[in-house]
Design a binder for these strands. Structure first.
Ligand code: ZN
Ligand code: ZN
Ligand code: ZN
Ligand code: ZN
Lengths: 176, 176
DNA sequence: CCCTGGCTGTTACAGTGTAACGATCTCTGT
DNA sequence: ACAGAGATCGTTACACTGTAACAGCCAGGG
């Protein structure tokens, strides 16, 4: 069974690895509200706005970038507040931290705490695609069990060139 | 063929994931000299001393830690120099950067540029074990090919508890 | 009402990494 | 040997990332 449903991950070209924008944002916010309701957590305004900012952007954002976007003239949001909001959001699987970039992306799946993701980071356009592969996970589990290692968290980040950008080799555009 | 030779990765308990110290250091330095010879590179004194410092330590070292160890009273080595040496060493596979720790470890394998490693990072003792799994790599390759993603570099870091530390649960080691 | 616990604002600071410039060294062709 | 090119290194300065500590705020329960 394909995790992506009927549409294979490359049957047709997505113009970005994942659609950013309002649709995905509303989806994530709804998920956050449900989650807060269930677990008795506080999905505060700052946390919601932080999640929205991360979700709107189509690429990983640094904490200071987020702080800047959250700030209005006369109402500055300090980075430390953003870090705290991000701690909350990552802890509950609403955003992910990209260790190799010191940046954050919205979660593109409803995966449980046990499932870990593979991040495909494009050098050219800077986009990040989050995919889940049970095959990779089982390979990892096998290797870990063999080494007697008890895993707590996993980081799998691949840097390279996304499908969309491979067609633009001769075009000398830095789309950034 | 097992990458570890006749000894499986867990047949007997290593007291640390990998033996640090002079033996491994000399091994790595020899490898570096061979490599520099072959590719016409400059294995300078700073690069060699940096490699030695990283190899001697049994755990990941930050760039500033390395700079401190390289500094002598009256002869200070700046962190930026260490970063440049580390760039060289990582570029040629002599040391690896642990993205989730902002730290560096010596390479424990003679793996070629294509082979990527899996790092097992122990929360308790801070040790890092580098292992190679062709199974994981093929799973990854399959997923990447399916997504039309052309990989350039891979990061796989698992944080958890190493085998040695799992036996010390009741021992009163501070969990952090 | 007051107390408690969680969230936020603010400041200060430690840690990580790079840009820029000049000096020095190495290799190479003359 | 000499000059030039390119890589390496020292130095300074700076940007970016992340956390500690403390104070104010706010909701919920006695
Ligand atoms: Zn996710
Ligand atoms: Zn791309
Ligand atoms: Zn290695
Ligand atoms: Zn351990």
């Amino acid at each position: 069974m394909d995790e992506h449903g009927a549409c294979g991950p490359h049957d047709h070209a997505h113009d970005g690895p994942v659609a950013p924008g309002p649709a995905r944002t509303a989806d994530l916010v709804a998920r956050a509200e449900r989650l807060a309701q269930d677990r008795g957590l506080q999905f505060t305004a700052l946390r919601r706005r932080t999640l929205e900012v991360v979700a709107e952007e189509g690429r990983p954002l640094g904490a200071y970038d987020i702080a800047e976007r959250l700030s209005a003239p006369g109402k500055r949001v300090a980075a430390v507040s953003v870090y705290r909001a991000l701690d909350f959001l990552t802890e509950h699987g609403l955003v992910h931290r990209i260790a190799s970039r010191n940046a954050f992306v919205p979660c593109e799946h409803g995966h449980g705490a046990g499932e870990s993701a593979v991040f495909l980071i494009c050098r050219r356009c800077g986009s990040v695609d989050e995919t889940i592969s049970t095959e990779i996970e089982r390979s990892l589990d096998r290797t870990l069990a063999q080494a007697g290692f008890k895993p707590a968290s996993r980081i799998v980040e691949i840097e390279g060139e996304c499908e969309a950008c491979q067609g633009r080799h001769e075009a000398s555009l830095p789309p950034d």
